[in-house]
Nucleic acid binder design. Structure first.
Lengths: 111, 111
DNA sequence: TATATAGTGAACCACATGGTTCACCAAGAT
DNA sequence: ATCTTGGTGAACCATGTGGTTCACTATATA
């Protein structure tokens, strides 16, 4: 799928624990590819790809400084992701309400 | 990756708009594979696979009734997903605080 | 200037994903 | 008893993903 919307890319970027780890690390401040690669136990090339995915999703910004690349948390605040989750939880709660209504009705009919 | 944790599976399941559409539809009440396949413009087999992904993530439960299969919203409330997003937004806000502190400091030094 | 270091791109690999068709089975309808 | 319908599993296909190695560039450092 070449054409993914913002939600697709954001959710996909977050579906990997290595990438979530990178975000967590960057929450403490910027880091280079190498500094991120060591704790991830991964090659520079491999880690770079993860950063690319995060950058495409707007979760990370990078800047080449000297011979290394500084990675920082990006501009995407995940508001849309949060909104979708909240929306879903609304559906879910209403589903529960429906079940409760059903059982209440059933109880009423039983007695 | 065979061993995915709950977050991995949940985020991955939500990273596809067809699947998010299925969840939205199921928020209005249960539906069969066929009823879900029509609006998705997809074969029964294709749609069944999406439902399987959602079921593996705990987002959907299904039950065979007669010759059709009833799909409903599952037990996964996405609390952990919500928690992660909230955690991330915390990181992000603190990052902003850091920038603000920096500029405040810089301003102080400039004058 | 020579050497070490940080990152990058291309090529490759195994496996996952998102879809299809086809053959089949079980359950309803006639 | 036959026919139709809803769903399923297997096989297949193209593309994506998560990782590697290797050759290379560009920047520091000695």
């Amino acid at each position: 799928m070449v054409h993914q919307d913002v939600l697709d890319r954001a959710f996909a970027a977050l579906s990997d624990s290595t990438r979530r780890g990178i975000l967590t690390r960057l929450g403490e401040g910027p880091a280079t590819i190498g500094e991120l690669a060591v704790p991830a136990g991964m090659s520079l090339t491999g880690l770079k790809k993860h950063v690319q995915v995060l950058e495409d999703a707007g979760l990370v910004t990078t800047e080449k400084v000297g011979r290394s690349r500084q990675c920082s948390l990006g501009t995407e605040r995940l508001d849309d992701v949060m909104a979708w989750i909240t929306f879903y939880q609304g559906l879910w709660e209403r589903r529960l309400d429906g079940l409760e209504a059903y059982f209440t009705l059933k109880k009423g009919l039983d007695k």
